[in-house]
């Protein structure tokens, strides 16, 4: 019995990581209706940038965030203004195919630069530390990951609904032409949205790299987890995305409890069940 409770707790905490995968995806979809197929590969890129930073500067992965976050944000802004803005329009093919091409390029560039050998970020003592909670040993790192996810989502929520930047995001999302007439340069606003999304991706990448080993090929899987969290939670709802991540995480740990081979499969099945029963997700955004 206690093992199952343990699995649920672990799954919930894992859901925090998936929510972080999903938050960037959700953010850019919300602002510019763009679905970035390369999102997972960008998470992996962040992990590798974290690896390079920790090795070069000899710092803890968390400290590496000081470098990796602005770097990813800059990459995001440049990517959006240089490439992705040109793909936006009524036709869904260009953004889809261009980000798909980007994904292949990123994967192979990482392969070229870092080989296919699995890598890991060394988080030190925090990786093995745990807290005893009512007979359960809860890992400090997963707990911290979950707390960071909650903080990031609360932060994004605040940016979106309480700042001028967020006002611009929502205005451009509502009506690009009128926003432009009000003096907003949508190319710049989209660039800022992608910068913010990839700054979040940097956090996700570092936490991923401390939790498990990674290699250039795992991006697709991370994209799918993030995507599933978004759809389970309901499009356009950041807190729903966190719930979606938790449901996905719990489904995976419960699946793994039955048979390790079922871990990822159980998550996919949970996603398909939600899609069958509640196609708009569990917590769709209420239009006001």
């Amino acid at each position: 019995m206690i093992e199952w409770v343990g699995a649920i707790v672990q799954g919930t905490l894992l859901g925090g990581l998936y929510a972080l995968f999903a938050a960037g995806l959700s953010l850019i979809f919300g602002v510019m209706r763009l679905v970035n197929i390369a999102h997972g590969d960008l998470i992996v890129l962040a992990a590798y940038l974290g690896l390079s930073t920790t090795l070069m500067l000899g710092v803890h992965p968390f400290v590496a965030l000081i470098v990796v976050m602005p770097l990813m944000a800059a990459i995001g802004y440049a990517l959006q203004r240089g490439v992705l803005n040109r793909t936006l329009g009524p036709d869904i093919l260009p953004p889809l195919l261009v980000t798909f091409g980007l994904s292949v390029i990123l994967q192979n560039a990482l392969l070229e630069g870092f080989t296919a050998d699995p890598q890991k970020l060394n988080g030190g003592a925090i990786e093995t530390a745990s807290l005893a909670v009512g007979g359960l040993a809860v890992g400090v790192l997963p707990l911290l990951t979950f707390a960071i996810a909650v903080a990031v989502i609360a932060g994004l929520q605040w940016v979106f609904y309480a700042t001028a930047l967020g006002r611009g995001f929502r205005a451009v999302s509502d009506n690009q032409d009128i926003a432009q007439i009000m003096g907003l340069n949508k190319a710049h606003v989209f660039g800022l949205a992608m910068a913010l999304a990839l700054a979040v991706t940097a956090i996700a990448g570092i936490l991923l790299g401390m939790r498990t080993s990674f290699d250039p090929a795992i991006g697709g899987g991370r994209l799918i987890f993030g995507f599933e969290a978004v759809i389970i939670g309901g499009l356009g709802n950041l807190w729903g995305t966190l719930a979606g991540g938790v449901i996905l995480g719990v489904a995976q740990t419960l699946g793994a409890k039955i048979d390790p081979g079922y871990q990822v499969l159980a998550g996919h099945i949970a996603f398909l069940v939600v899609l069958a029963v509640r196609p708009n997700g569990l917590f769709p955004r209420v239009e006001h």
Binding site: L34, V35, I37, L96, G220, I224, F227, I231, F271, L272
Partner: peptide, 11 residues
């Protein structure tokens, strides 16, 4: 819809 359909097929 659209791009989400694409990722759905991947799942």
């Amino acid at each position: 819809k659209g791009a989400y359909f694409a990722i759905g097929t991947w799942v």
